[in-house]
Design a protein around this nucleic acid. Sequence first.
DNA 1: ATATAAAGTCAACAAATGTTGACGTGCGTG
DNA 2: CACGCACGTCAACATTTGTTGACTTTATAT
Lengths: 195, 195
Amino acid sequence: MDETLCMPRRRKCAATTREMIFEAARARFLSESYDTVGMRDIARDAGVDVALVSRYFGSKEDLFRLVLKGGEDRKFELPGNAAELPAFFLSMIAQGEDAECGHQRDKLMIMLRSASSPAAAEVIRSSFGRDVLEPLAGVIGEPNADARAVLAMALLIGTNFLKTVMPIEPLSQDELSHFRAELLRLFERVLVPQA
Amino acid sequence: MDETLCMPRRRKCAATTREMIFEAARARFLSESYDTVGMRDIARDAGVDVALVSRYFGSKEDLFRLVLKGGEDRKFELPGNAAELPAFFLSMIAQGEDAECGHQRDKLMIMLRSASSPAAAEVIRSSFGRDVLEPLAGVIGEPNADARAVLAMALLIGTNFLKTVMPIEPLSQDELSHFRAELLRLFERVLVPQA
DNA sequence: ATATAAAGTCAACAAATGTTGACGTGCGTG
DNA sequence: CACGCACGTCAACATTTGTTGACTTTATAT
């Protein structure tokens, strides 16, 4: 039985090119909207023919759905107790490329970018509710778990939107420190129950 | 000399059809992304031929730019002193159709919807900085006017995004009241200096 | 009534979109 | 060696996109 991974003796391996296409699609969807990303763009980035994209991942919508699911990664992964949430949310905004929270933020950004494309809207909505909002409300806990989860996500999404989708000219240095500190305090206010 | 407005004795008047097209475009851009809105959609809504859209407003990008400018309306209009800002921001989220703040929110929503379309991005960015962020920072005042303006807009944008672009299933009634009260407190914390 | 200019319609264009089928190529096995 | 299969390429498709030019209709002015 052959390994499912790419064997070096075979010059061309479907699994690796599939991965390349997937990664190219992921990068594209991360920085552009669903409609503006073309199959040919993805194919060019991956260094393959356009036909292969459709061949390996059925339709464009299927590909997008798979990218949004995050490949083999499972659900949104967030801290177990509410006390660690504010720092976690802040790290989702700071541009440090933590491997752990990078995936999470990427998923969120992909959702942000394509949320207003009808073809991608339903996929995004269901994934957002199931994989993000619901688990978050679970960690936050009563009272008003849902409302506070929405509030926290609104703050996170708004900030990331201004930062990434609609790039804001960078704030001055002391303003930025104030920005971060205030942001952390806001997250604490919304997320931890006793505050 | 003729009046520039449509005269009733003339059956067809360019100004009124131009207005119809403009209004149709406005409505479309308000609920869809720049890329998904087609010239033919706008024309159908306005009840005219596609060619007229291109004839009256040069290109699609020109039309979008004009819609974003708000027709004849001038810049973003917001309360003069910082104390009234929180209530104003909250009213921008509540779905009450105040004539005064309706225009403002519509502009914001149009920006939100099409921000990730490269063709519309630069138009939106410049308008957002010039017409929204800058005046807001002026009203907020020191210290850290820019940072706090960004923070407030992040909260507003995030909430409106979750509410409109990615429609969230409605919160329960007491959660919603908590939501609004907490939201107002957050806006107060960010916007009024002494808080 | 006839000419003139505005207002609108029709058809077509070039380019780009997602998707599909036929075809070529190199590998491992009979 | 030759067969068959996995892997990939090429070309073309049907649609849709924004935009443009020529033509028709309508209302005013001479």
